[in-house]
Design a protein around this nucleic acid. Sequence first.
DNA 1: TTAATTCCTATTGACTAGATAGAGATTTAG
DNA 2: CTAAATCTCTATCTAGTCAATAGGAATTAA
Lengths: 144, 144
Amino acid sequence: MISQKARYALRALLYLAARGDARPVQISEIAESERIPRKFLEAILLDLKKTGIVRSHRGRSGGYSLGRPAKDISFADVLRVTDGPLALSPCVSVMAYRKCDDCFEESICAIRKALLAARDATAEILESRNLAAAAQQLRRSGAL
Amino acid sequence: MISQKARYALRALLYLAARGDARPVQISEIAESERIPRKFLEAILLDLKKTGIVRSHRGRSGGYSLGRPAKDISFADVLRVTDGPLALSPCVSVMAYRKCDDCFEESICAIRKALLAARDATAEILESRNLAAAAQQLRRSGAL
DNA sequence: TTAATTCCTATTGACTAGATAGAGATTTAG
DNA sequence: CTAAATCTCTATCTAGTCAATAGGAATTAA
């Protein structure tokens, strides 16, 4: 399951993508529109900023905007920031590989082989879904 | 990421599958062979028993054996017991559906659509991988 | 300068993961 | 029949994580 943090992050980003505005949007506007606890959202946006997914503008009339075109921000990008690797085991993570603590011999591990296939399948999907497409979908549904 | 419990469960089941013996195997044998904390393994096997994945035989010369043919026990079956639903969100879980707490309108949720696709991809893989195939793989690797 | 905003660190409460302990119930070998 | 071997159950502990909140420091536009 994804964390609440991930949900909030996706909703906030989707809000920015759907708004499509060049001007920065304030935390409080996002928080109110998406019903996200304001202080929590602050922390989330800070994380997203560190990885370049959003850009911040400080001071009066500051706020946040997407760090790159919406079509270049995938669901995988976001989940990796909020929830860590997509993989079900460190030993099959592409972005954050680590040997399992008590692994005997990785190359013949039958569990690993299944988890690797699962990771690839998930990554394939989540990397192909991006904010632009999701926002487009909302528009078509008449939600905007 | 899967839990340590899931790892232990898979290892223990793989041990039973690879052994292929009709006779029940004792907890302590599995625990020692697979280097799993004995008492923790007890709890895990109890969970697996409740769902029919293993069968237990009490009393002297008792132990555990697979509850059905190894080829009919998928990785998905095991992970669902130890870690809950495969889905990344309750609203896309097939085995344990639940509406998201603060969902506005599920049918047009763009996040849900992506998570649903991810779930289907993962489930497809994890339901197709079973203990018999995994044990076979180990044999071919010369691990047994 | 001042008001509005993001940035940063710390803290809290609830919950879960992983592991352990010990007594109880059941079965079978002898 | 009895005793040893085994699974069964309940309770507990510690460390860590998740979700949320608080308060003030730094920055910037007007």
